[in-house]
Design a protein around this nucleic acid. Structure first.
Lengths: 191, 191, 191, 191
DNA sequence: TTCTAATCGAGACGGTACGTCAGGTCTTCTC
DNA sequence: GAGAAGACCTGACGTACCGTCTCGATTAGAA
């Protein structure tokens, strides 16, 4: 396997940029996380930033995805309803976290009007998470827990959209108790 | 009756600005609806725009609110479930409308990082609509259709957030049939 | 003689405007004496100002001319040299006065690039004063005090330009003693 | 020898800006030489102009100083009076030149109300020129040509201020013959 | 070791939009 | 008809950030 020639990319620089972007986005909103400001805070040349990312939002998104890489695991040996509660609860906790929530809001704002961010957000954030819920529900249909003519997409929507909705509009996040109530109601309604 | 002094505000100018902002936001996203561009398209002086609105997003929001002023009416003589279907269906239709949906996405993006827009969006758009649903559900509790310990906020969230979720992330809107399935499931789950 | 119709022009308004303009010009230089600022300080409508003067500099000039209307009188029974000293000394005193000097500097700055101000400044300020000196020198030629081939314009220039020069470039004004030395030298040189 | 890092400053850009400013100031007066107009005519970005100069007048002044860098040389082997005639004549010629005269008028106008321009004008234009005349006169005192109690400042004022005076008030410039007469008269008056 | 290719840093430059200010014009009402 | 009040347009202001560019300095593997 051939090693590249030339000076290798500095991991320290990459990390400093991701950190700086995350801090700025969390503190001052999308207006603060400009490429200029990121470069200044990371003590890095603007040129270097432009070399690796196309926009400030792309940096924030990359940091966001890196910080929440795990967490789509279904607890082994759990019932369907428990798996759903687990998933929605975890999602809700992530979005309610002030740091992560602020980052995601910034990325969502940037996705409007930047198709690249939009696509990355969809394929790298939304779809994996939906997929996990879809899997749980598909299993439930297979075992007969759920009727075969259940519209799974609708159920997923009802389960996962409330946390996003509250985040996006700046409403207080759902409590653990309400998450439980939400999943119970939806589950009861379709089983 | 006291007549105002000075030259009266031109309604033509206001209309041209709202229209221009709506067109730009629908066409090119939040990046396109700058105050400069709005003033140019409306053939109006930039200073005039600044005199009446604090930001481009405020213009878009005002136009949006003006264009969907009605539409929170509960059809008379309807059952609770019918009223809910009516409401969610209407909401979904509004958000699925390419023009209105694009405008709202822009406003949502602007609300991140602009507390004034955020507050206006919440009090003038979100809350009235939630209120209508809350009313229907409160009536249902009063008539015994719904159990007294139902958490109404949770039910509202489950009903109204999916259309926003799909709009925000650029997913295809819910079909009429799926709206019906959503309301049925949630209703069944909590009654 | 028929009286004019309509409301007569308010003398109070005119005075307030002239005063405000003079104060602003003296305090903050030409940048401060804008029509907006003058109208604000005089507590007068901008429209009214525009109705009577074409520019801020015109107001300052009018106030300036009004404040130094007299002062071109030759002391009776004086010799030519005494008359010259009197004139240059008076001119120097006027220009050295902080208030008047500041106003004149403003008007001079405005005259560059405003032909109307330029013409008014020349005919209403410069020429009357030069005329007085020219008269004294012409008399001196007539009485034989001065040679007939003296170039009077040159002598006038040498006498009156230093105070303006020092005002325009912000140099300290001539002392009374130096004014005397100046007139003596020029007089000695041409007689 | 240390080489500079970064992209070197474009001399072409600097020259284009100075030229454009000079042309605009000469043509249209101080109102025409705005930074916007200069940038447009020089086909240069406005931000670049702001990077190097604080105001339009500073550009005009820099161009002016550059265009008349030489010209304070005393002709070798000349008598004092010849040196004075040479200097005043050269000064008068410069100020009478339509291009240079217009530029200087603009700068003078800008110096009122801009202390930085005022100071630069004084130290970089006025004082070097006065200094040359002062030197000639000091020499003359040393050689006994001039009395020791001559007030040199006064003599300098009498010699150099007339050309400025005529320029500033838009009067026709002195002819060569009148310059000679001026220097002769002042010299005769103090020797 | 030297060459070579890449990263990284510094800074100039052309742009676009920002929000503000002043100059003017016009319209309406009041004295 | 004078004056007040205020809407509107024009155009320049100075700033911030964008993205591109041209350099020099640094750091490695490859020749």
């Amino acid at each position: 396997m051939a090693n590249r020639r030339g000076r290798p990319r500095s991991e320290a620089v990459r990390g400093a940029i991701l950190t700086a972007a995350a801090e700025l986005a969390a503190e001052g909103g999308p207006g603060a996380a400009t490429i200029d400001a990121i470069a200044r805070r990371a003590e890095v040349s603007r040129t270097t930033v432009y070399k690796w990312w196309p926009s400030a939002a792309a940096i924030v998104l990359e940091g966001l995805l890196e910080s929440v890489r795990e967490s789509i695991v279904r607890p082994p040996g759990s019932s369907t309803i428990e798996a759903l509660v687990h998933h929605v609860s975890a999602l809700n906790a992530i979005l309610a976290d002030p740091a992560v929530g602020a980052l995601l809001r910034n990325v969502i704002a940037a996705a409007v009007g930047d198709p690249a961010i939009q696509a990355a957000l969809l394929t790298q954030w939304i779809e994996p998470r939906r997929g996990a819920v879809v899997d749980s529900l598909t299993d439930a249909v297979a075992t007969g827990e759920l009727s075969g003519d259940t519209d799974i997409e609708v159920v997923v929507d009802a389960l996962v959209s409330p946390p996003y909705y509250r985040l996006v509009f700046g409403m207080p996040p759902l409590s653990e108790h309400r998450v439980r109530a939400l999943v119970d109601a939806v589950w009861a309604g379709c089983s």
